[in-house]
Design a protein around this nucleic acid. Structure first.
Length: 491
RNA sequence: GGCCCCGUGGUCAAGUGGUUAAGACAUCGCCCUUUCACGGCGGUAUCAGGGGUUCGAAUCCCCUCGGGGUCACCA
């Protein structure tokens, strides 16, 4: 089956790409690449009310940012385009006409109001809210009457009333549905535009899809789609319904759960590589026990057989851990480039300064990135290299500035650094250690207050790495200023 | 409510009749150390419940319970 595998990701542009959608796209891509197949992106914009150009752009942007590149689709073209359903209306019409001519579909003149009334009535009576099929066998006279009244109509597909429809699912096995639960589904809305279930089937066939990999929420729709394939005389593709991703409270993902869209994660400082790695392991697992999995490795190992059936709750903590890993392991220049936009956004540096001082920023990132979990956090923790220290962390003041010799040590340290010939990591460290050793103190006695003095914080990279990068002038100045600050405070 | 899917620690998750039930995140403790991270070592914690089948069940069957999905002129 590795020949000519064709799969697609088919989002509707009615919102941003959330992590569930991203995972579905990922699995499609992984499957396609693993089998040397083709990954198609198709935009399902048949809902003219809710579809927006903005959503389309956002989804495309997110997909690209994640590195989920498609072979055919918007911006790429391909032999089976166009890849927007709104541009394929003629095809659908042709297929609907065929169904109508063959007596497999019919006009329905029931209004949405009537339908929902009946649905509610049925629900109240404890019956399944199924379409009663009253327009299924309209006489020519009845039809003419409705037409003359100018009633809008939809087109419905006749579903078999007896028997069963089996979905052969690659992940779940055979799932059987009684045809009696199937409604005559609407395939064309009264505005003349086909519905999802229909357009999707027509396109998957026209675009020669071999496997339909999508979220589990579509499993219940699948028997209807299979009947549509049958009515149209199409070959039925293989189905694989991947488990859903749930919010921490086990409910379906939604806005109120905080960050769920790919762009929100991006804006919080997560790397695309981390999201891909995390999503790869959510619902799929490799044969080994590795947790760090880049896309290339995932492509090599991905199979549908190892996708599990259970819905997964996403856990930001693990994502954050993975992000921390990539923060320190990925190429330094790349991480630096990724960090700069966050620095600019926070007003730590300007775009121009970033350009002029790239190499310096890179050095700063080099000594700092080990401790940051996100790009956003990294930008915060390195701000003191570019901005003056305006306040000192309170618990640090209590711990390190309140000792009686703190101000004195800072002054001594500053004086020594001013006179130092080689302003290097080792020399500055030696200097500090000598000062404390002469006084019978531990080096920590000067290291901690100095860190607080020059960074404003109690945590951070190794002090002498900081000092060397910050430079003699700023280091000395900040140490003196802190010594002064302590004296003022104690008076 | 009908139908469908699912049920291994707090979370992800390996496991396909015989295992001391892996591993990871989180959490707790210790070590390393100029702080914080990283790293190393160790601990707590899981087969939803009940019946079967079997010499033997996390693995097979049934029931119950729980969670989710779906029943739109949304996708």
């Amino acid at each position: 089956m590795s020949e000519n595998v064709r799969v697609r990701f088919a989002p509707s542009p009615t919102g941003s790409l959330h992590i569930g959608g991203a995972r579905t796209a990922l699995f499609n891509l992984l499957f396609a690449r693993h089998n040397n197949g083709t990954f198609v992106l198709r935009i399902e914009d048949t809902d003219t009310e809710r579809s927006t150009e903005e959503s389309t752009q956002q989804i495309i942007r997110s997909l690209k940012w994640l590195g989920l590149d498609w072979d055919e689709g918007p911006e790429k073209g391909g032999d089976f385009g166009p890849y927007f359903q709104s541009q394929r209306l003629e095809l659908y019409k042709k297929e609907v006409d065929r169904l109508l001519a063959e007596g497999k579909a019919y006009y329905c003149y029931c209004s949405p109001e009537e339908l929902s009334e009946r649905r509610e009535a049925a629900l109240k009576a404890g019956k399944p809210p199924k379409y009663d099929g009253r327009c299924r066998n309209l006489t020519p006279e009845q039809r003419k009457k409705f037409e003359d009244e100018g009633r809008p109509y939809t087109i419905r597909l006749k579903m078999p009333e007896e028997g069963q429809t089996a979905v052969e699912d690659l992940i779940r096995g055979t799932v059987v549905f009684d045809n009696s639960v199937l409604d005559d589904l609407i395939i064309v809305k009264s505005n003349g535009i086909p519905t999802y279930n229909f357009a999707c089937v027509v396109d998957d066939n026209a675009m020669k899809m071999t496997h339909i990999i999508r979220a589990e929420e579509h499993l219940s729709n699948t028997p209807k789609q299979i009947q549509t394939y049958l009515a149209l005389g199409y070959e039925i593709p293989k189905f694989a319904h991947v488990p859903m991703i749930l919010a921490p409270d086990r409910s379906k993902l939604s806005k109120r759960h905080g960050a769920t869209s790919v762009e929100e994660f991006r804006d919080q400082g997560y790397l695309a590589e981390s999201i891909i790695n995390y999503l790869t392991l959510l619902g799929w697992s490799p044969e080994g026990t590795e947790e760090i999995f880049d896309m290339d490795k995932a492509i090599r190992e991905f199979t549908l057989e190892r996708v599990n059936k259970t819905a997964a709750i996403y856990d930001v903590k693990k994502l954050t851990w993975i992000n921390g890993h990539y923060m320190r392991e990925l190429d330094l220049e790349y991480i630096t480039e990724q960090t700069i936009p966050f620095m600019i956004k926070k007003g730590i540096i300007t775009e121009e300064e970033a350009r002029d001082n790239f190499d310096y920023i890179k050095k700063v990132v080099e000594i700092s990135r080990d401790r940051a979990k996100t790009l956003d956090e990294l930008a915060d923790t390195i701000s003191f290299f570019f901005k003056d220290v305006t306040e000192y962390e309170e618990k640090g003041v209590k711990k390190h500035f309140s000792k009686e010799n703190a101000a004195k040590l800072l002054t001594l340290g500053a004086e020594a650094l001013e006179k130092l010939e080689d302003f290097t990591h080792d020399k500055t460290e030696e200097t500090f250690r000598n000062i404390t050793a002469d006084m019978g103190l531990k080096a920590a006695e000067i290291i901690h207050p100095t860190r607080l003095a020059i960074t404003g914080r109690t945590v951070g990279p190794g002090l002498f790495d900081i000092i060397v990068l910050l430079g003699r002038e700023k280091t000395v100045e900040r140490m003196r200023k802190a010594a002064q600050w302590i004296s003022n405070k104690s008076n």
